[in-house]
Amino acid sequence: MSANIDTKQLIACQQCDALYDKPELKQGQSVKCIRCGSTIAERKVDSIERSFNWSLAGLFFLVPAILLPIMGVTLAGQYHHASLLDCILVLIDRGFFMIAILVFLFAIAVPIVRLFGAFYITYSFKFNKLKPSLLHFLRAFHHLDNWAMLNVFMLGIVVSMYKLLDDTDLSVNMGLFAFILWLISSTMASAALDQDYIWQRLEDEFVD
């Protein structure tokens, strides 16, 4: 209980609070907690470069994924298609405001903000434009961790296709491919982001 513990030399498991000496990790290595088995720290390979490229790709696919029609149906000679944005607009039109807002948040807003966030952070690191405001930015970024549901929406598309295949003519549009690519690149962008390393760099730069 001495007052001069060096917190820089210690890490704790987020899941069970076990305290360890901080290990020196090489790229690609990770440490697991011996008590609860969860990963405590991980040093990802080429984190900044990979995350930057994936998020750039994600930004490229973002607009077509939202605006292009995902799928369309033909029944009795009539054809109608809808994009991700149409889902929101139709729900608002029919008066389901709560669902419209939540679908907008989980399937559009949060993924976009996370993608821009990952892009901005990796951009700042790649071109050495570190600012103290990044500390606040990254903390805000963490609040959105659980709320991006692109993968769930993808499964939703598959299920509703099965539902429609039964008694209508279903056509798949370009929006679906753009959406899949957007899903892949934004998932990879956030998976490649090495947050321990980023925090460490920011700390060395701006704290003390």
Binding site: A76, V103, F153, L155, I157
Partner: peptide
């Protein structure tokens, strides 16, 4: 999942 499915069906099946 179910919420997204309904949201999609509402938007797509509009004939």
């Amino acid at each position: 999942l179910d919420v997204f499915v309904v949201a999609l069906l509402v938007a797509v099946v509009e004939l």
